[in-house]
Write a protein that binds this DNA or RNA. Sequence first.
DNA 1: TCAAAGGCGACAGAATTTGTCGGGTTTCGA
DNA 2: TCGAAACCCGACAAATTCTGTCGCCTTTGA
Lengths: 141, 141
Amino acid sequence: MLTLSKRVEYGLMAILHMSDVRAGDWVTAKDMAERYNIPGELLGKVMQALARAGLVSSTPGVRGGYRLNVPLDRMNLGAVIEAVEGPVLLADCQGHPDRCDQFHACTLKEPIQHIHAQLVRYIHNISLSQFRAPPALETVP
Amino acid sequence: MLTLSKRVEYGLMAILHMSDVRAGDWVTAKDMAERYNIPGELLGKVMQALARAGLVSSTPGVRGGYRLNVPLDRMNLGAVIEAVEGPVLLADCQGHPDRCDQFHACTLKEPIQHIHAQLVRYIHNISLSQFRAPPALETVP
DNA sequence: TCAAAGGCGACAGAATTTGTCGGGTTTCGA
DNA sequence: TCGAAACCCGACAAATTCTGTCGCCTTTGA
């Protein structure tokens, strides 16, 4: 709960990596997989998902690879999560209302939709540039 | 990802239920399980976790049960999640750094701690009174 | 024309979550 | 005083989800 999946982590690592490379250069999934010790085929799938969502561009062929399609500071955590895992659901009754044993007795349905909307907005406001900001300067009272 | 577990849902339903009952009345896990169609033993464990965290009081014995220990508007979502599932982790490398195949190559460690701290603060600011607020009045620009 | 790359679907293994069972301990009331 | 009803707790089985692997296809460029 509230834990990023491996796939999202891999996607974030790849995105950060690509943002370090000379703009316009193509980077292969294999390269990144080796560098970060990520299973190659899995990173491939994650990259394909990011490409489908338009966050990165891809080109096949022998000199192919991936590159960022959007500058880092215009990407956000919510977009990456949704690209890699599909829509965020706060409760799975939002996705599979049929498989919920609490159906009509449930007192959470409506409030969950409310909180869900807040949370989605929240994660879409977390810019990926925060992922390379200097360590948080916590305000200690 | 970002999905509330069944156990947290059950805990929330129980808390909302108890906040509806005359203050000071004891409610049994069995009663709530039947009313909301929740497996009894499971709800029992969830209630025990809430009790250990001090959110509810419990009393054994034939006229025993549970009751709220803290008024609804002073409870928050983060406290319930942590009571039921233990500490929130944004990445499981925070809990099991050993089992992370990316160890030193990982570029996410520090930023994740930063975002994690933000997120924990965020969910602790979601008051449970929001779970029975009227439907969200979205500000449409 | 061939090696190297992305694209995709199906599947096995691992891990987590959910639910069940059995046995305790405490309390109240008949 | 004794038993029913409740909380308490650990261990285990079942179900689900997540992770990782494999095979085959298409595209590109030297």
